[in-house]
Amino acid sequence: MKRILSTLLLSAFLFGCSSSPSDEQRIKSVTLTGGQIQGDATSYYWYTRRLQQSLTASDYVTMGDYGWYKTTYRWEKNVLVEAVREGEMLDNTDGLIPYMMHVRYNGNGEAVYQRYRKDGRIFPLMPNQLAQFQDQSKYLITKVEGLDKEGVALYQGEWDGETFYSCDGQQYDQLEFNQILPNFVVARLSGLDSFISFLGEEKNRDKKVLKMSELLLLTDDSYTCVDRPELIEE
């Protein structure tokens, strides 16, 4: 009887430990966001990980007159196994033309499947293009994790001069600027309804205060939110 009772108590103890909130919290995936401006390129980043293991990431990059692209990356056991990119690139004769790249890698990082379609025609991917996905995905992770350590994330939404309405449904009653902005930008932010995207942090969550560290985009309020690209089918 004592042995049965001890077994039941041990089972109950183990069950309680396995279902504790702290354990569940550790296995939940976490999504970090970020972005940057480099020359003519403006980039938005999304990165999802679980237990410090990379799961998926996405980017959306505009390059002015040179085109744009969006990418989705997927990892297994912290090894990049797939990347899909769609966008438009500048062609010397035809202007902007559409293109798509799809690569799958094995556990050693070798491309075992590749597809490159440009303006309706099929081309082989060069070794530097195959390596590009590896390099850019690593850079994305490093950039976003660095921003996250500073408490900085990507914000998008509408600003009416007094209140910021973010794309994820949050409302912030105050927006502070930690960046010297040109006079025409300050004037626009003060007087016109605008769509803005920026890197920033919550300075006071209770009072709904955001502090902007880098402005990425300022345009009229007809602009729509940039959704995270999801180009890889589950």
Rank of each mutant, 00 (worst) to 15 (best):
L96P: 09
E76A: 14
P98S: 12
L96K: 10
Y69L: 08
V81A: 02
Y69T: 01
T71N: 04
T93S: 15
P98H: 13
E76Q: 15
G109I: 07
E86P: 06
V84Q: 05
E110S: 06
Y99D: 05
G87R: 08
T62M: 04
G95L: 14
A83H: 02
G87S: 12
N78K: 06
K70A: 06
Y66C: 01
N92Y: 11
K70C: 01
G67W: 05
L90C: 07
K70L: 05
Y105F: 12
R104N: 04
T93Q: 15
M63A: 09
V79G: 02
G109D: 10
N92R: 13
Y99S: 07
L80H: 04
G109L: 10
M101S: 02
G107Q: 13
N106P: 03
N92I: 10
M63Q: 11
T62V: 05
K70D: 00
G87T: 11
Y69N: 07
T62S: 06
G67N: 09
E86H: 07
E88N: 15
N108P: 03
N108C: 00
G87V: 11
V79P: 05
D65C: 00
N92F: 11
T71H: 00
N78S: 14
N108A: 08
E110Y: 04
T72S: 14
G87P: 09
Y73I: 00
I97Y: 08
R85D: 02
N106M: 03
V84A: 06
G87I: 11
G87Y: 07
E110R: 00
V81K: 10
N108R: 08
E82K: 12
Y99W: 12
L96Y: 09
R74D: 07
E86R: 08
N108S: 10
G64W: 06
E110P: 02
D94Q: 15
G95C: 14
L96G: 11
E82G: 04
V84P: 01
E86F: 05
W75F: 10
G87K: 09
A83F: 01
Y105C: 05
V103S: 05
N108I: 01
L96M: 12
M89R: 15
L96N: 10
M101I: 02
E76S: 14
E88I: 09
M89L: 15
E82S: 13
M89D: 10
G87D: 10
G109R: 09
M89K: 15
Y99K: 08
Y69R: 08
V84C: 01
Y105D: 03
H102I: 00
R85Q: 12
G109Y: 07
Y99P: 06
A83Y: 01
G87E: 09
T93W: 15
V84R: 04
G95W: 14
T62W: 00
M100Q: 12
T62N: 03
R85K: 09
T71D: 03
Y105E: 03
A83C: 07
N108H: 06
G64S: 08
V81T: 14
G107F: 04
L90E: 14
E110W: 00
G107R: 12
E86W: 01
A111M: 04
A111Y: 02
E76I: 11
M101W: 01
V79D: 11
T71R: 03
T93E: 15
N108E: 11
P98A: 14
Y105H: 04
D65P: 04
G64M: 06
N106Q: 02
E76G: 07
E76F: 07
M89C: 08
E88W: 12
R85A: 03
A111N: 01
M101E: 07
